[in-house]
Nucleic acid binder design. Sequence first.
DNA 1: GTGAATTATGAATTAGATTCATATTAACGA
DNA 2: TCGTTAATATGAATCTAATTCATAATTCAC
Lengths: 300, 300
Amino acid sequence: MNIELKHLRTILAIHKTGSLQRATEQLNMTQSAISHQLRYIREQIGVELFVPETRPLKLSPEGLELIEAAERILSEVDKLKSRFVDLRSGQTGRMFIAIECHACFEWLFPVLNLFRDHHSNVDVDIKPGLAFKAIEALQNEEVDLVISADPEELAGIEFHELFTYEPIFIASRNHLLSKRPYIDAEDFADQNIITYPVPKERLDLFNLLLLPAGIEPLSIRQIELTSVILLLVSANKGVSVLPDWVLQSSRETDHLTQKRLTKKGTSRKLYAAVRRRDSEKLYIKTFLSLSKNILSRLST
Amino acid sequence: MNIELKHLRTILAIHKTGSLQRATEQLNMTQSAISHQLRYIREQIGVELFVPETRPLKLSPEGLELIEAAERILSEVDKLKSRFVDLRSGQTGRMFIAIECHACFEWLFPVLNLFRDHHSNVDVDIKPGLAFKAIEALQNEEVDLVISADPEELAGIEFHELFTYEPIFIASRNHLLSKRPYIDAEDFADQNIITYPVPKERLDLFNLLLLPAGIEPLSIRQIELTSVILLLVSANKGVSVLPDWVLQSSRETDHLTQKRLTKKGTSRKLYAAVRRRDSEKLYIKTFLSLSKNILSRLST
DNA sequence: GTGAATTATGAATTAGATTCATATTAACGA
DNA sequence: TCGTTAATATGAATCTAATTCATAATTCAC
């Protein structure tokens, strides 16, 4: 027995309009096509659906049952369809985020708070633990958005620039280097550095300054939480380099001195990577737009 | 957006087998056909269902949702199908009965009690109030079976003979006619007759005897209930003619005398009319078979 | 019963689904 | 990283099945 949704729709239209003739309008088919189809359906299910030789067409008890089931099934299908219309247009969906940069929590949480106001239907989560394999996870659809400072050329992946930031040197006000107008690579050679617990090559300080200059600091201490880093630096247990936005938004900068790296300063850019096919989704656009503006919001 | 059940089945098969290649077995199609169909589905719903370029195929979050909905919908459709398989084979269905003969309640109830043991899934009901238009109601599918004594040649309708019965004259033991070996038409001319409240031409007594002989009884009193008729006749308030099965099965015949109509007796047949298309249904066959045997069951 | 409207049917046509042949792409082991 | 194998994608050809067209058969209302 082969039944398709098309057939259910036909039966429903015939029943609702009361005749094959009038059903033609709803179904955009000729009366002949409907008649052929009705015969096919009758053959398939082997039960008379309409009382024969009556007009307007009257349902048989079996026909009535079919109609009721058909309405249930078709409404389920319609729900499914509109669900996909929503998914496609970005009214709803999933946005799992992987972050390659540790400090990004500082601006990401405020962004997501704002985001929730716009898209309460979107399932948002931050996936920790795949910082290094983030882009791979994006391709695998394990996550839907990656915050990264290292754009690559990848098929199906788009990097959207979010904002430019400046890695800033911080030390205690009592620190020797607090007298300098700016900090250079060599200055780190005898310093205790406090960083996030990630490999060197993923830290701005090393990327931009120390690795090119071939300089090793005196020691490296790895700390998870930004506020603890600030605390330790304030207490003169070491120095650090953090993105400027962290220092703008933090209330624990009173005992700190901030300096540029190198005379003319340094800069980095942050990107959000998404699958190209997702980039038109409404909620992705909202996220990108909110992220681009988040720094000015935080500083006021 | 056009989705058919076929497509849901395809997606489901791909997911369950993990590859287009293996899905070919389930679907009895070539890998190429499945691939084309998959592309069509993708175009229709506009959302990537499987993570591209991965093997074994992995569902995207959207794909997972589709699978879940597809399983719901297809199971609903399967239920519908098996429902119709049952309906077609007569495992289940509706059997609304119209009776043209008043006394038939006497044997019909016992039949239906037995019937329920065999077919608890069949929706049984007796539809009163359309005694005269019963056959019409059968054609309109308002009822599914008619008990009738007057078979006709009608397109799509079959009359199945149930049993032969004898209309029997009854009177009080004290009644004058109780001495007679049998009763003739003329004997009714000075009698008070008690009958069911239906037109004369639908009563055996008039059909078989009085109308042909052109004889009018002294009076006619119409009574609904068989037991009340028996009561009144017992009390010598009049005489009546009832089918033999009523008298066999009744416990209120002690004060009655029973006589044949005419010297060699009379006989009538009862029929069950059904739509030809229903006559192969299991439960209809059961009903016919039970009805044919009911009289011997009642008399024991 | 007659005419108007509706449904059914067969043949012709058309659309669309499937296959075949083959190119492309991933997966795995050396 | 390369070659090998297996799987998927694709285009054209084919075939199936749905739709239309033309028309016959029914039904309904007056």
